[in-house]
């Protein structure tokens, strides 16, 4: 078992997870658990509470972020916040899924996730939709710089590269 107890972020998550009494309402409400038994929100929270560590299986990335568990939790535990926190920790360690990394790259490059193609521009023109004002690229860069997104991105770029090799 990896001792992560020194990690303040983890400790905060543990604190947030503390009221959980393992009733299973979250799991029974989870659309992903219904089709993919390896994603069990109750077990993710359990792992945080009892082992003080991020669930080893990396199941946090299977969360669909539908917030059903959070809405129904009888103890008011914010499961999505916890899963998001786990993801933030994993991301720092370069464990983000490639498609998420790609999204972040797109955001950095264009300030937008969906690719703008000639085709989609043409569609807008055909439908008589207005040209949307574009954000200042400097703003995007600044936010990436100051909020530590560059580092996270870099950690994951390396990981993606290693994976490819």
């Amino acid at each position: 078992m990896v001792d992560n107890s020194h990690n303040q972020e983890l400790e905060d998550l543990r604190e947030a997870a503390r009221p959980c009494f393992q009733c299973g309402i979250c799991a029974s409400s989870c659309p992903v658990f219904r089709v993919a038994p390896e994603m069990n929100p109750r077990m993710s929270v359990d792992s945080i509470i009892t082992d003080g560590q991020v669930p080893a299986e990396g199941n946090e990335w299977l969360c669909a972020y539908c917030l059903m568990c959070e809405e129904r939790c009888p103890m008011g535990v914010s499961l999505t916040e916890i899963l998001m926190g786990i993801r933030n920790i994993s991301s720092k360690e370069g464990k983000a899924p490639p498609d998420f990394v790609e999204s972040a790259e797109a955001l950095l490059a264009r300030g937008c996730l969906s690719p703008t193609s000639n085709r989609s521009v043409k569609k807008r023109v055909d439908l008589g939709l207005p040209d949307l004002p574009q954000p200042d690229p400097e703003h995007v860069k600044l936010i990436f710089e100051v909020t530590g997104a560059y580092e996270v991105l870099e950690a994951n770029r390396v990981a993606v590269k290693e994976e490819a090799e």
């Binding site: 009733c23 299973g24 309402i25 979250c26 799991a27 409400s29 658990f33 069990n40 129904r72």
Partner: peptide
């Protein structure tokens, strides 16, 4: 395991109970 939700089958009015058997996950 605590019942998470109950849904009704539209034709039979039978009920579908969703619950996690927490003993067996």
């Amino acid at each position: 395991g605590r019942v998470g939700e109950i849904q009704q089958y539209p034709k039979t009015k039978n009920l579908r109970v969703s619950v996690e058997d927490t003993t067996h996950n």
